[in-house]
């Protein structure tokens, strides 16, 4: 059988293909672990997969990639996540 080689542009998977998207953020979500009831609503609602889920269902926020949309704070029923304005550096 004759084999054809098709040359095409191929992209490979990489975490952070657009760089550290955390720099897009204006408001930053802050998690209060004492209030958290481990319902995982923030984890499943995050568009960016920036809320990490541990084995015991506790969550932590990855600030390198969080775009600061605020869905997690809006979805949290016990208000364990609040949005705070990012501090500007060097001003």
């Amino acid at each position: 059988m004759k084999k054809y080689i098709v040359e095409t542009s191929l992209s490979y998977p990489k975490k952070g293909a657009m760089g550290k998207t955390g720099s897009w953020r204006v408001f930053k979500p802050v998690l209060d672990t004492k209030k958290c009831v481990k319902c995982l609503r923030c984890w499943i609602s995050c568009p960016e997969a920036s809320i990490h889920r541990e084995k015991d269902n506790s969550v932590s926020i990855d600030y390198d990639f969080c775009k600061g949309c605020g869905i997690c704070a809006n979805e949290c029923n016990v208000k364990a996540i609040v949005m705070e304005r990012e501090k500007t550096k060097g001003k």
Partner: peptide
């Protein structure tokens, strides 16, 4: 779906 993609914040 890996982190750090080009979607808008709050993308459905």
């Amino acid at each position: 779906l890996l982190q750090g993609n080009a979607s808008c914040p709050g993308c459905p």
